[in-house]
């Protein structure tokens, strides 16, 4: 019998440079990566009204905030500074003294925000920040009272968080812009 002898080359792939290749790729992705989470102030816009009349809102339950073209903040027609917004909103929403001019309950309180076309964006955001801050403080206080932990420490979408959110719902409304 004739056995054909074949000289076989070693067919193994050199694997030692694999780590180097992976390293290069790794460094590329390390450099390129930006692990930034998007942060910002969340808001829900009111839907476009139908022909149906919206339910009447009692004047005392509505806090009207106007930021005018000069960047002045008017709270129910009083000019206020940015720093005054937070305590005023807190007082309006919570109404601890049952003032007949302030909201009946936190659930009824509506903060209505109106702007001009020339309103500076930065003032608007500062004001919105303060309004959000007022709600956050109220929620925090309620959470401390009930559960002994700050609101942010409550588990996301837990029953406790839901309760606090129902207690102080953020009813922030963007007023219809003027025509023209």
């Amino acid at each position: 019998m004739l056995l054909k002898k074949r000289q076989r080359d070693d067919v193994e792939i050199e694997g030692s440079s694999m780590a180097d290749i992976a390293f290069l790729l790794l460094i590329f992705f390390l450099v390129v990566t930006t692990i930034d989470v998007d942060t910002g102030i969340g808001l829900v816009l009111p839907p476009i009204p139908d022909d149906i009349e919206p339910p009447p809102i009692r004047e005392r339950n509505m806090l009207r905030i106007l930021v005018n073209a000069q960047g002045m903040i008017l709270l129910d027609d009083d000019p206020v500074s940015t720093a005054e917004v937070r305590p005023r909103v807190k007082e309006f929403v919570d109404n601890p003294t049952n003032d007949p001019n302030l909201s009946e309950s936190p659930d009824d309180a509506i903060v209505s925000i109106k702007t001009d076309r020339q309103t500076p964006y930065s003032v608007y955001i500062d004001m919105l920040d303060e309004v959000m801050g007022a709600y956050n403080e109220l929620r925090n206080e309620a959470s401390m009272d009930r559960f002994g932990v700050p609101y942010s420490a409550l588990e996301e979408d837990s029953i406790q968080q839901e309760q606090i959110r129902e207690l102080y719902p953020k009813r922030i409304s963007i007023a219809e812009p003027d025509e023209g």
Binding site: V44, L45, P46, P47
Partner: peptide
């Protein structure tokens, strides 16, 4: 609002 995308976020 017309499009129905009501959830917004002012990036800051």
């Amino acid at each position: 609002r017309h499009a129905g995308t009501l959830r917004i976020n002012y990036s800051t």
